[in-house]
């Protein structure tokens, strides 16, 4: 691989621009495909390009062209949006990052955000409705609310329900969750909407400590993310 091509690949990855590195495994010749551009010494047929673009959309790395060309697709990391920079968030941020997520923490209380910033999360110091507008959750985004304060959690959940987020979870006991669902119904959410919210959040592993709860949340988010791949 040419060092120059590697640095082009890295700048695309850093810019979160989906792309593919295509390698002829017999000659080692390589080309980057992405964003309508084709850069490199390996020339590709129109058929191959169409197949490569399909793999980029599907975020799938694979051999093509009778197993001579390897297409390595680089997509932005899935995101975990955490609303509430509370104690559990301090465990959830590094665990989410280890599991391959970009961690984003929304909290209007700047003092609470210090630990999230230290852990390398993207910290958004905004009220959740404004924060969620900045984040724009997509189908590779999980949203987890942790404040159990209705004025912070509810707007975030309503925004998440309007988005194609693949996972929505809300911290709180069964009782808290029942009350929450009633409030969201009053705001116009349908029963179909509300079944998207996992509450109490996380897999039931009898978690008690903040770190244990974070494990159960990360596990449930992974379960939801990979369910589509089965």
């Amino acid at each position: 691989m040419k060092l120059g091509l590697l640095s082009q690949l890295q700048s695309r990855i850093a810019a979160k621009a989906p792309c593919a590195l295509v390698t002829d495994t017999t000659t080692g010749a390589q080309t980057i495909v992405g964003g309508g551009e084709v850069v490199g010494e390996l020339s590709l047929s129109a058929d191959a390009l169409a197949e490569i673009n399909r793999l980029i959309s599907a975020n799938q790395s694979n051999m093509i062209d009778a197993s001579t060309l390897f297409v390595r697709v680089y997509s932005p990391l899935p995101r975990m949006v955490i609303v509430g920079a509370v104690h559990i968030a301090q465990s959830l941020v590094p665990m989410a990052q280890l599991a391959g997520f970009e961690a984003i923490v929304i909290d209007p209380r700047s003092a609470f955000l210090t630990a999230s910033k230290l852990a390398g999360a993207t910290a958004i110091e905004e009220w959740p409705d404004d924060g969620m507008k900045k984040v724009q959750p997509d189908s590779r985004t999980a949203v987890v609310t942790l404040t159990h304060d209705p004025k912070l959690d509810d707007p975030a959940l309503l925004a998440a329900l309007r988005s194609p987020a693949f996972y929505i979870g809300a911290l709180g006991s069964r009782k808290t969750h029942e009350k929450r669902l009633q409030r969201l119904r009053d705001e116009g959410s349908t029963d179909a909407d509300l079944t998207r919210i996992r509450g109490p959040v996380g897999l039931n592993i009898n978690a008690i400590s903040p770190a244990e709860i974070a494990v159960s949340i990360v596990a449930q988010v992974i379960e939801a993310l990979r369910a589509g791949a089965k």
């Binding site: 790395s61 051999m63 390595r72 697709v73």
Partner: peptide, 16 residues
């Protein structure tokens, strides 16, 4: 740089 380009059966790391 070593890259997994193809797998068959229960290999531990996916292509890529």
């Amino acid at each position: 740089l070593a890259t997994v380009v193809q797998t068959w059966g229960s290999s531990p790391r996916p292509a890529g």
